[in-house]
Amino acid sequence: MRRVRYFIRVQQLREISLLLILAAVIYFFGREIEDYYTARMYNRIATQVALIAVIAVGQTLVVLTRNIDLSVGSIVGFTAFYLGDQLSKNPNIDLETAVAIAVGVGATMGLVNGLIVAYGRVPSIVVTLGTLAIYRGLLVEYSGSQSIQFRQLPDWIKTLPSEVLYENFGLDLRPLPAIAIGVMLVFQVVLLYTIFGRRLYAIGSSPEAAELAGIPSRRMIMLAFVISGALSGLGGFMYLARIGTITTDAARGLELQVVAAVVVGGVNIFGGSGTVFGAFIGVILISTIELSLIRMQINEFWKDALLGAFIMVAVLIDTFIMGWLRALWSRTELRRASSVQKVQSI
């Protein structure tokens, strides 16, 4: 038991329970739906997860600092359109340049958010609610209300989503999920092993203490927004590759799914705790439920109501049950410590 407690911390507990819930959900749908465990279903879910997960990673960084970024949906829409437009004008742009364009445009938009939040001292909810509308407006102005058609795009991006990088047991790894997993792993490492990552936790955990400890909070918060924007730009690229046809309504409302996934994935909306991995599982959970509901043909319209309920439940668990668990944990921890001390003093 002591060994178990040594390896599993409260934080991990949340992720483990999420995995269990995910398993239960898959088991439930597997019983309800015929031919549920198929490669087709897996691929569908994987592509859907890929897009949301990349953006959720960026959102996680922002939420860790006690902020929120509601403009991600519009950034995805704009970059997808802008990139689609560039690609249809110059079909000889290659993959790397395309990704660089998307990430660059997204990062610029994130920079605007970050500057106003960190240095203008405007609450992030106000800023990003505003830029949500502004970036959408930019998209409409830029597009002149036209759409990007699938056939205008170069061939390489058309075939990109269905390429198979690796195949085993009838399940294949395609580029978009591979990107998502890569991004998730990279930022899991960034959060765990870099000074920048640990400072994000510190800022969200106690802004006052962060100030006293000499952490440049403003710069860190701005960076978090820039990364969120850049990853949304990458999301725009993936959106373009996956959907192909981009209207001015592209990715509208995506921000709500992303925020829901992040919160459900155990990232504390009040900052300071949570992991990219947790958010990733949150995305899988939400996408699985959504797509399975569609597959069940009962009522895909339950999705949003469930999302909202999920957020509330996650927040309630965070405020009440996790606090209680933590207290329990540290108490046993202390009892252990004091018993050790007694032994030593004897």
Partner: peptide
């Protein structure tokens, strides 16, 4: 949720924003 459970209104009403819209979708599909 806001007054008696002391959860910030930002979070509560963001969840409400999604959930109430979801309820509307359930009704009208």
């Amino acid at each position: 949720f806001v007054a008696y459970l002391n959860i910030p209104s930002l979070v509560v009403t963001l969840a409400g924003l999604i959930a109430y819209r979801g309820a509307a979708r359930i009704l009208l599909e």
